[in-house]
């Protein structure tokens, strides 16, 4: 198999694995409602930001979700936001790859949570890095799946025009996570707290 085919099929396989893992999540209405509403919020934010090209809050929201609610929820919010927001902004063969990359952004937030929770600077740097990785990742996949070729010259030729957009994306992530990152994590922690209820024994409540 060619490297291009491995990358393209690997991406599809990662998406399928993510879907299966999310399906196997045990967790009631509360978890499902929180993920759904964060997907909707990221979508609303992406559309609200549409006036500034490639500035959008999806990456930042996916990352903080991953940190606060775990890699699965982060991945679900990133992937879901890609799918849902593209119904407003245009679906195409790019949708699965955006789902994968934003899903990975969310999941990686969860994997690195212990570090990212501790330092605002680390969180901002992580967001900035994802801004660049996201743009590069999109072009790699486009070249792998549809060509013309997965080679360095092709990547440079395709990616050169995307660099300014990637920089805006990275800058947006740095600002959003710098200003709102830590408060958002605290907010999510609060609403994700597991509720444990009980009935007191009858005689005790007399």
């Amino acid at each position: 198999m060619s490297p291009a085919a491995i990358v393209a099929l690997g991406g599809v396989a990662a998406l399928v694995i993510g879907l299966v893992l999310y399906e196997r999540t045990r967790g009631g209405a509360r978890e499902l409602g929180l993920v759904a509403v964060l997907v909707a919020a990221a979508t609303a934010g992406r559309i609200a930001f549409a006036a500034i090209p490639s500035a959008q809050p999806v990456t930042a929201i996916a990352i903080v979700t991953g940190i606060a609610l775990g890699p699965r929820a982060g991945a679900a919010v990133g992937a879901g936001a890609a799918l849902l927001s593209n119904t407003f902004l245009g679906q195409g063969p790019w949708t699965p790859w955006q789902m994968l990359l934003w899903g990975l952004a969310g999941a990686s937030g969860g994997w690195l949570a212990p570090v990212l929770r501790r330092s605002r600077v680390a969180l901002m740097a992580f967001g900035g890095a994802w801004g660049l990785v996201f743009g590069a990742g999109m072009d790699v996949w486009q070249l792998a799946a549809f060509g013309p070729a997965l080679t360095l010259p092709a990547f440079i030729a395709v990616h050169a025009r995307a660099v300014p957009f990637d920089l805006v994306h990275a800058l947006t992530n740095v600002i959003l996570l710098g200003v709102a990152g830590m408060p958002l994590i605290a907010l999510l922690d609060r609403s994700a707290r597991r509720m444990r209820g009980r009935w007191l024994p009858v005689e005790e409540s007399e």
Binding site: A29, R30, M195, R196, G197, W199, L200, V202
Partner: peptide, 22 residues
Amino acid sequence: LAPAFHGGEAGGTGSIGGRDLR
């Protein structure tokens, strides 16, 4: 919904629609 969804503590007895709340 309380206490099952909201957490917390409940006491006393009751039935609703023929079902035991507890």
